[in-house]
């Protein structure tokens, strides 16, 4: 039965080639929008994920903290689970770094006979610990340690990254949901049209003793092939775009070469199309009655 169902599906695909081609292209455009969304979300996510690695927290010390007090603060910090490294930065080192950073605007330091910067401790956190809440908690704990005057951490920066990421995720999910529904609808309408065009034939099949599966299977296969072809067309388009356009342009625009290509996601496009196509077809056939 299955081979014959494939034959019926192929016959219908050829017989109704224009309708089918049109829906394949429509599905491909929908999947293309999904792909672009995924591509953007994936890259934004990857970029913001790497940012916290560079994140550090600065603890400013009270003036003239004795050496043994300093040692005990540093050991206490190292013992914390979220901390990956702790470094003492003396006020002299700090001003040197600052001078280095501002070497084109040296006038800032003119007239300074005393170093205004305090001694400080730089604390780097483990990657997985860098979330807005965790950092806040650690900074509050640090603030209670005797000898620490002030804690500076990029609270706003972290919160901003977090909201960008969740924003991108939300928009991506909503967009993908809407377009997936659209693709299912395209497959639904196509199969519905094909089903109506063949309703006479289906009636005869039933009278000759065809089971529901015999009647349904060709339409499910056809819907699946339409969906998968749409996915395949999108995959080809995306690959061409990536390997030809991006690869060539990144010679001129180096930033492009840092873009990541979620290969497995894109390779599964035909499968996604297949699934959406079969779903649309199944809804279109609905419940058969004898």
């Amino acid at each position: 039965m299955a081979p014959y169902a494939f034959r019926l599906a192929l016959q219908s695909l050829i017989r109704e080639k224009w309708i089918n081609l049109l829906s394949i292209l429509t599905i491909a455009s929908g999947l293309l929008v999904i792909s672009v969304t995924l591509f953007a979300a994936y890259n934004i996510d990857a970029a913001t994920r790497r940012l916290p690695e560079k994140f550090s927290m600065i603890l400013y010390l009270e003036d003239n903290t004795p050496q043994d007090r300093l040692e005990s603060i540093m050991t206490a910090l190292r013992k914390k689970r979220a901390v990956s490294s702790v470094r003492f930065i003396s006020k002299d080192e700090a001003i040197k770094e600052l001078r280095g950073l501002l070497k084109n605007s040296n006038y800032v330091f003119e007239g300074l006979d005393e170093n205004p910067l305090p001694d400080s401790i730089e604390v780097k956190l483990k990657k997985e610990a860098v979330t807005a809440e965790a950092v806040k908690k650690i900074s509050e704990e640090a603030q209670t340690i005797k000898g620490i005057k002030e804690v500076d951490y990029g609270e706003k920066f972290l919160a901003a990254i977090h909201s960008v990421r969740s924003g991108v995720t939300t928009i991506g999910i909503v967009l993908i949901a809407i377009i997936s529904a659209g693709i299912i609808f395209v497959c639904y309408s196509t199969v519905k049209i094909l089903f109506y065009r063949r309703s006479d034939e289906i009636e005869t099949f039933k009278l000759l003793g065809a089971t529901k599966t015999f009647i349904r299977l060709p339409f499910l296969i056809e819907g699946g092939i339409i969906g998968a072809s749409g996915g395949l067309a999108t995959l080809l388009g995306v690959m061409m775009f990536y390997y030809i356009v991006i690869a060539r342009l990144s010679a001129a625009i180096p930033l492009l070469s840092t873009l990541l290509f979620p290969r497995t996601v894109f390779l599964s496009l035909p499968l996604i199309g297949l699934f959406l196509g079969i779903t649309g077809a199944a809804i279109a056939i609905g419940r058969l009655r004898y």
Partner: peptide, 24 residues
């Protein structure tokens, strides 16, 4: 049952008055 109807019909050959041949 609906699912049994195809089985019944496979036991029966029908010469329909209106033929019901598939035109294509």
């Amino acid at each position: 049952k609906e699912s049994t109807i195809p089985l019944l019909r496979r036991h029966i050959g029908v010469v329909f008055q209106d033929f019901r041949l598939l035109a294509n």
